[in-house]
Amino acid sequence: MTDRRRMNGPSGGTAPPFFASSLTSKTASPTQRTRAPDELRKIFLKTGLTPSASGSAYFELEPSTPTAASKSLASKAPALKLTCTVHGPRPLPRSAPFSPQLLLSTRIKFAPFAARYRRGYIPDAGERDLAAHLDTTLRGVLISERWPKSGVDVIITVLEGEEDDPWNKGHLNENERAGGWGMMSILAGCITVASAAIVDAGIDCIDLVTGGVAAIVRQPTAPLQVYLDPCPSDHEEIFAACMIGYLQTRDEITELWTKGDIKASTDGHGANSMGFEPLVDQAMEAAVAARLVLIEAIKESTGMKVQTSRIGHPKNAAS
C-alpha cells in the first residue's frame, strides 16, 4: 500500500554525507559511557505540551555524551525526544459496539527525521510492535471500568530516537530496525511519558507506571556488568536487556520485555553472576528513578493548575 496523498520522501535510507574530518576525528569512534553503571541519563519531563489535547507530555533524555564535545553534526550523540498526547476519554462513535470499559488505543510513530534511517508515514512493524507493548503496559494501570462506552487515544511521536549504532557501515538490516536495543529505552520513555500525559488528562489510574531499562553489557575494559539505562551506542556489546513497566507503590509489573541471551553472558565468566532476576531488579530500579521525575513533573503541573484555577487542594488533584 502506498500513501498517495503525501509527498513521500525516498523510502530507503538517506544517509547524511560523511565528511572526511568527522571520520578521522576522535569523535567518530563509538562514544564511551561516562555515566556510572547505576546512573540514569537525565530526564526532562513536562506535561501540558498540547493545549488542544486532554492530556499531553513531553519527554526528553539528554544525550549520553554532551553535544558540545562533538563538533560535527554527523557525530551527534543520540538523544531521545518524545511527545505524547492523550485524547479522551471520549464517547465511542455510534457505530462502535458497546464496550463496558474504556477502550484504549495506542499509537507510536517515529517522525521521518527521528533517526538516521528515514521512516515513512505509515507505521512499520517495529512501531506497531512498540505500540502493542505500550498498550499492555497502560491497560494494567487504567481503571477502565469507570469509563464505559468511551475510548481514549494515546499517541506518541518520537521526535528523536536513538539508533543501535549510528556508525553502522551504511546498511541497516530489517530486523535490527524492527527491534534493536535502542527500542527498549524508547519504549521505557514512551511508558513514562504516556503515564504523565494520562495523569494530565485526569484519567483514573491505580498507580503511576514508569518504564526502566537495564542491560547486561560488556565494556572493553570492565567485566560483564548490569547497567541501568543503557545507550546502545555507548557499549561495545549488549548481551541482554530488560525493559519493565513498573508500579512502585503496588509493587506490580505491567510490562516486561527481555531480549538477548543471558546464558551466553554468564557462560564466559563462570558462576551465575548475571541472572534474569537481578536484571529485572535493576530495570525496576531504573523505573523507580524515572518515577521520581514523573512525580515531580506532575506536582509542578498540578501546582500551576491550582494556581490558575484556585480550586481544590493540590493533594487531591495530584492523583
Binding site: 530526564i43 526532562f44 513536562k46 526528553e60 532476576e277 525496576m284 530500579e285 523507580v288 521520581l292
Partner: peptide
C-alpha cells in the same frame, strides 16, 4: 525486591535524575 513490598523508604534514590530542558524543549 521483596523489601520493596514493605514500605519503600530505603529503596528511594536520593536524587531525581531530572534534567533541564534542552534547546529544543
Amino acid at each position: 525486591s521483596h523489601s520493596l513490598a514493605s514500605p519503600d523508604i530505603e529503596k528511594k534514590p536520593e536524587i531525581t535524575p531530572t534534567a533541564g530542558p534542552s534547546v529544543f524543549a
